[in-house]
Amino acid sequence: MTKILIADDNKQITSILEEYVKKEGFTSVVAFDGEDAVIKFETEQPDLLLLDVMMPRKDGFEVCREIRKVSNVPIIMITARGEDFEKIMGLEIGADDYIVKPFSPGEVIARIKAILRRIAREEKNVQVFSYDNLKINLEDYTVIIDEQLISLTKKEIEILWTLATSKNKVFSRDNLLNSLWGYDYFGDNRTVDSHIKRLRAKLDQYSHPNWEIKTIWGVGYKFEVLEHV
């Protein structure tokens, strides 16, 4: 059964979310501060995490960073302010999605379902892709360049896979958003830009002279291959 970890110091919000999660047939675990969220994550091994930004002891950003060191479990950040820097910060450190308070519990459930459907689709199509010095394995979600394991988040690997398996094809931001987040995703295409920026920075730490993720200004992105390869 799918287990959701709800981390929020507002007991009224956690109670409502617990009720809605239960109605969908999921189980839930609750943490009321950041340190407890990390402990519950380690002991309960949830399938998805709803993570509030403003929590005592450790904020949601700190919790997300710690979890991303050891796991690619889906994380939906919850922010009260709705400010762009918080959304971008969450995405930069590895969150899969964000939602702004006040929100309807139905919207949260819709986001959860969208992520779980995407994961289910991915698990049905396990493949390995290799090109030049790059190898992407969706079975264990690893990326290797020149025999070196690259530390990427699950979403970054999915973006790289989508681009690399369609070499030289240009994907618009909306293409990537719909393909990787789903048509029922509530965010905007700046989410794509944020993930691409982080992915490119990690890849560029390693030599890959025969290919690159190239920005097509005003359009989107592509995995560009040089002709001499």
Rank of each mutant, 00 (worst) to 15 (best):
W181T: 01
Y206L: 00
K135R: 14
V70H: 15
S179C: 00
K154N: 14
I6W: 05
D59S: 12
E19W: 11
Q45C: 08
A95Q: 01
L116I: 04
H208K: 07
L116E: 00
M77F: 04
H208S: 08
K113F: 02
C64A: 15
R68S: 13
T153Q: 04
L51N: 10
Y98D: 06
E83Y: 12
V63M: 10
G60K: 05
W161I: 00
I88C: 02
E83Q: 14
D59V: 09
Q45H: 09
L180Y: 01
K169L: 02
E44T: 03
Q148D: 15
R65V: 12
T79N: 00
V30R: 06
N168D: 09
A201E: 15
M89H: 14
K124C: 03
A114G: 11
G90P: 04
Q45E: 15
K214S: 13
G106R: 12
K222G: 08
Q127P: 01
V192A: 00
T142H: 12
K101H: 10
T191N: 04
V63N: 14
F26I: 02
D9F: 09
V219S: 11
D8Y: 11
I119A: 03
V73M: 12
V21R: 01
N72K: 13
E139F: 09
I67E: 01
I196S: 02
E35Q: 03
K23Q: 10
L180W: 03
I4M: 15
I67D: 06
R111N: 07
L149W: 04
A120F: 11
I67Y: 04
D146I: 05
K154L: 15
V128P: 07
L199C: 08
F186E: 03
E227K: 12
R200I: 15
V30D: 05
L48V: 00
I157H: 02
E62I: 09
G106H: 14
V143H: 04
K87S: 02
A80K: 12
A114H: 01
S166W: 13
G25A: 08
R190C: 01
R81F: 11
K214I: 01
G60R: 00
L17C: 04
E24P: 09
V38A: 05
G106P: 03
S71W: 10
G220K: 02
F103G: 06
F171P: 07
F26D: 04
Y185R: 07
L17Q: 06
V29Y: 05
Q148M: 14
E18G: 10
D59H: 01
L177G: 07
I75Q: 08
E227Q: 11
I13F: 11
Y185S: 12
E156G: 14
T215N: 12
A95K: 03
K202S: 05
G90E: 02
A95V: 06
L17P: 00
F61A: 11
L91E: 00
Y183T: 11
E123P: 00
I78A: 06
T165Y: 05
D174I: 04
V192G: 01
P105H: 07
V225T: 11
K23R: 15
T191I: 10
S172K: 02
Q127L: 14
L149N: 12
V170F: 06
L152G: 06
I78T: 10
R65I: 11
